[in-house]
């Protein structure tokens, strides 16, 4: 179960976090300066025990590493909001148990670009009689045959 969550977390990170932060191998691609340490009781630089993967690994074990003697606590940490090109701000919060990511929740992410590109609506080409209309837009009167015919009629008048 946890293995599957790790896989989903891995791909979710890839699609929702749009800040161009280069992650060190084996670490999560968060901007370290913007987040709280994964395990505040740890000394030194915390190294997460979870590796980001893009495919389920059959032999993955549930990672556990505890640097303290106390039991891990589940916490929710809200990340900062960052502007993503064309999408407004993106902000996520992380649910952690110890240094294990249980869930990543999108706090804000606009689906719609600020200027939504629009397209004319397609539909079936309709047709109706022009009999009861006196004004028609379209190059109706520029066909040579039409003008010739008209001129011939006017010449006879």
């Amino acid at each position: 179960m946890r293995r599957v969550i790790l896989w989903l977390v891995g791909t979710a990170i890839g699609t929702t976090v749009l800040v161009g932060v280069k992650a060190a191998p084996g670490t999560l691609p968060f901007d370290r300066s913007a987040e709280a340490p994964l395990d505040p009781a740890a000394s030194g630089t915390p190294t997460p025990a979870i590796t980001r993967t893009t495919a389920p690994s059959p032999s993955a074990k549930t990672p556990t590493r505890s640097r303290t003697t106390t039991a891990p606590v589940t916490r929710t940490i809200v990340g900062d909001a960052f502007p993503a090109r064309d999408f407004g701000d993106v902000q996520v919060k992380v649910v952690l148990t110890g240094d294990h990511i249980d869930d990543i929740i999108v706090v804000q992410m606009s689906n719609r670009p600020r200027k939504a590109p629009s397209l004319l609506r397609a539909e079936a080409l309709a047709e109706q009689s022009a009999d009861n209309l006196t004004n028609i837009s379209g190059a109706t009167y520029t066909s040579e045959a039409y003008v010739r015919s008209l001129r011939s009629a006017l010449a006879k008048a």
Binding site: E127, S129, L133, I136, T140
Partner: peptide, 18 residues
């Protein structure tokens, strides 16, 4: 109100919209 037909692009005696 004024009603203006839009000539049907294939049938000269018809309109495709008003």
């Amino acid at each position: 109100r004024w009603e203006i037909g839009i000539r049907h692009p294939w049938h000269p005696a018809s309109v495709c919209a008003v």
